[in-house]
Design a protein around this nucleic acid. Structure first.
Length: 154
DNA sequence: GCCAACGTTGGC
DNA sequence: GCCAACGTTGGC
């Protein structure tokens, strides 16, 4: 199984939304690299960190589980949707999404500013300057290390 | 709100 | 196929 990190803006869709829904689809991804990971690599049973971006304290806030592998993102077909993409159609979908299930919140938010301090995480795209990837793989070592921070702030 | 970094688009 | 222009992401 694989580990992931997935970004979302809490004003648009945050961990509380997912907690309420239980299971939801991860729609609206319009980046090819991120799409390829959802379409080709994510499998049910994989775990992912829920990351809050573009907010007061950006950071990792929770854990979710992938429960359905990649399938076409229907919001791309809907002219009413803000994720509408006329270049995607049901016969030849351009964008994909997965379904995720809320697992739990972390006992504290682990801020980006803190994650940047650890040499163990220096290879994560997340902490690199200018990175805009909204979905990225996390190694088992990175996963365990981040979880070890939950009760032991720097 | 600013702006650097980046991805995408489209003219040529 | 190049690359300038543009739009978006996302930290600060």
């Amino acid at each position: 199984m694989n580990y992931w990190l997935m970004k979302s803006e809490p004003d648009v869709y945050g961990i509380n939304h997912l907690e309420q829904e239980g299971t939801d689809h991860w729609d609206g991804v319009r980046n090819y690299q991120a799409r390829n990971m959802m379409r080709d690599q994510m499998k049910p049973g994989d775990l992912a960190f829920f990351y809050h971006s573009n907010t007061e304290v950006p950071g990792i806030v929770g854990i979710m589980e992938i429960v359905r592998e990649g399938y076409p993102d229907h919001t791309a077909f809907d002219p009413e949707s803000k994720y509408y993409d006329p270049k995607s159609d049901p016969d030849n979908p351009r964008w994909y999404m997965v379904d995720v299930r809320f697992v739990r919140k972390l006992r504290r938010v682990i801020p980006l500013a803190e994650l940047k301090q650890y040499p163990q995480l220096a290879d994560m795209p997340l902490v690199k300057k200018g990175n805009r990837l909204s979905i990225m793989p996390v190694t088992p070592e990175q996963w365990d290390f981040i979880l070890s921070l939950e009760d032991a702030p720097a």
